[in-house]
Design a protein around this nucleic acid. Structure first.
Lengths: 119, 119
DNA sequence: TAAAGCGCTTTCCCGTGGGAAACTAATAAT
DNA sequence: ATTATTAGTTTCCCACGGGAAAGCGCTTTA
């Protein structure tokens, strides 16, 4: 079996690249992450208000997702010592650096829909 | 309750945008899609060869994912009438239009890893 | 005659993602 | 006294993504 194009060894660079892509996907995957980031893109917001704007999400999911985003440095969490505690969430400057990805996905998704429907 | 920033009505444009983003995510989500697209990015490839290069994937998953990518026009499937049938897959020109998204994700993922590790 | 290779499909099974609802703690309003 | 509000947490439950393995139809090789 002469030249079968198999047994290809991916360079470390390729592996690293694939891993980076996967990391990004993992962070954004799931039903809610992007909805939450998108909503926070309009400005800081309180937990309850977020829950009302991200239609359909339950409090369990919302707090879990926000925690992940906070751990990853995309979201800042601020607790206010008000009568019933209030917690405000906002995108960090770093959180805004995902914007290009989101934009590319929005652009491509729009074109894709047009292409699929046209058939 | 004067100005509570709630009851915000998202414009149709916003909804469309969120939907486009979600469509793109849905298409790329899961454990294998990006690995497959990434591998096909190196050039056309046969089923078995693909399965060997995308480490860990089973034939069920591979054929299922390839079907989805084909339906969405990202991948072209060509059957050759050889002794044991061989099927070659390749990225369509349209499939290559996702490159910018993948690139953005690779870039961001790399920066992100650096940022997380540095702490 | 058996085995091996190709491209799947089918069956079975399990872990996780995610939903619904109840519950907590503290305070203000009725 | 009761209800409401904020921000969660906890429990229970189910559907779905995805893995392992076997089967299938066909043909060449041993």
């Amino acid at each position: 079996m002469p030249n079968k194009n198999e047994g290809v060894i991916l360079s470390d660079g390729c592996r690293r690249r694939l891993q980076s892509i996967q990391d990004t996907m993992d962070l954004l995957a799931g039903k809610w992450k992007i909805r939450i980031i998108g909503t926070l893109g309009f400005g800081p917001n309180y937990f309850m208000s977020l829950q009302r704007q991200v239609e359909g999400i339950g409090s369990k999911m919302l707090s879990k997702e926000l925690q992940e985003l906070e751990v990853n440095g995309l979201v800042k969490r601020m607790v206010y010592d008000t009568k019933p505690v209030t917690v405000k969430y906002e995108l960090t400057p770093y959180g805004n650096t995902i914007a290009p990805i989101i934009d590319e996905m929005a652009k491509w998704g729009e074109i894709h829909r047009a292409k699929i429907l046209q058939e």
